[in-house]
Computed example of a mutant assay.
Amino acid sequence: MAAEKEKVGAEFQALRAFLVEQEGQLLGRLEVLSWEVTQKQNENPAQLEGEITQLSKLSSQIQETAQKPDLDFLQEFKNTLSKMQLGREKE
C-alpha cells in the first residue's frame, strides 16, 4: 500500500511539473501574440492615413474636373477613374 501511495504521489508530482511547463509555454506564446497584435494595430493607422491622403487627392481632382466643360470633364473623369483602379490593383 505504501508503495502504491508513493507511486501515485510521484505521478502527480510529474503531472504538476508538466502543467507548470505547459503554463510557461502558453504564457510565452500569449506574450508573442500580444506583441504581434500591437504591431498590427500600429501599422493599420499609418496605412489608413495613406489611403485617406490618396482619396483626398482624388476627391480634389474630381472637384476640379467637375468645374470644366463637359468634354474635358468626361476625359479627366475617365483618367481619374483609371488612377483609382490602378491604386486598387496595387493592393
Rank of each mutant, 00 (worst) to 15 (best):
Met1Asp: 08
Glu4Arg: 14
Lys5Ala: 12
Lys5Ser: 08
Glu6Pro: 06
Glu6Tyr: 07
Lys7Phe: 13
Lys7Met: 09
Lys7Tyr: 12
Val8Ile: 12
Val8Leu: 12
Gly9Ala: 11
Gly9Ser: 15
Ala10Asp: 05
Ala10Cys: 03
Glu11Trp: 06
Glu11Gly: 07
Gln13His: 10
Leu15Ile: 03
Leu15Ser: 09
Leu15Thr: 13
Leu15Gly: 10
Ala17His: 00
Phe18Leu: 12
Phe18Asp: 15
Phe18Trp: 05
Phe18Tyr: 06
Leu19Ala: 04
Leu19Phe: 00
Leu19Thr: 02
Val20Glu: 06
Glu21Gly: 05
Glu21Met: 03
Gln22Val: 06
Glu23Tyr: 15
Glu23Arg: 05
Gly24Ile: 01
Gly24Glu: 00
Gln25Trp: 02
Leu26Ala: 00
Leu27Gln: 07
Gly28Arg: 00
Leu30Arg: 01
Glu31Trp: 02
Glu31Met: 01
Glu31Phe: 01
Val32Lys: 07
Val32Leu: 03
Leu33Trp: 08
Ser34Lys: 11
Trp35Asp: 01
Glu36Pro: 11
Val37Pro: 04
Thr38Cys: 11
Gln39Arg: 14
Asn42Ala: 07
Asn44Phe: 12
Ala46Asn: 04
Gln47Pro: 01
Gln47Gly: 01
Gln47Cys: 13
Leu48His: 08
Leu48Asn: 15
Leu48Arg: 13
Leu48Val: 07
Leu48Gly: 06
Glu49Ala: 04
Glu49Asn: 06
Gly50Ser: 14
Ile52Val: 09
Ile52Gly: 03
Thr53Ser: 13
Leu55Ala: 02
Leu55Asn: 10
Ser56Phe: 11
Lys57Thr: 10
Leu58Asp: 09
Leu58Ser: 12
Leu58His: 09
Leu58Thr: 13
Ser60Ala: 13
Ser60Ile: 12
Ser60Pro: 02
Gln61Asn: 05
Gln61Glu: 09
Gln63Gly: 15
Gln63Asp: 09
Glu64Gly: 15
Glu64Cys: 08
Thr65Glu: 10
Ala66Gln: 13
Ala66Trp: 15
Gln67Asn: 13
Pro69Ala: 10
Leu71Lys: 11
Leu71Arg: 07
Leu71Gly: 03
Leu71Val: 08
Leu71Gln: 09
Asp72Leu: 01
Asp72Ile: 00
Asp72Trp: 02
Phe73Glu: 05
Gln75Pro: 00
Gln75Gly: 05
Glu76Leu: 03
Glu76Lys: 02
Phe77His: 10
Lys78Ser: 09
Lys78Val: 07
Asn79His: 04
Asn79Arg: 04
Asn79Gln: 06
Thr80Ala: 08
Thr80Pro: 02
Leu81Tyr: 15
Ser82Arg: 01
Gln85His: 10
Leu86Ala: 14
Leu86Asn: 14
Gly87Tyr: 04
Arg88Tyr: 10
Arg88Met: 09
Arg88Gly: 15
Glu89Tyr: 02
Glu89Ile: 04
Glu89Met: 06
Glu89Trp: 01
Lys90Pro: 00
Glu91Val: 06
Glu91Lys: 14
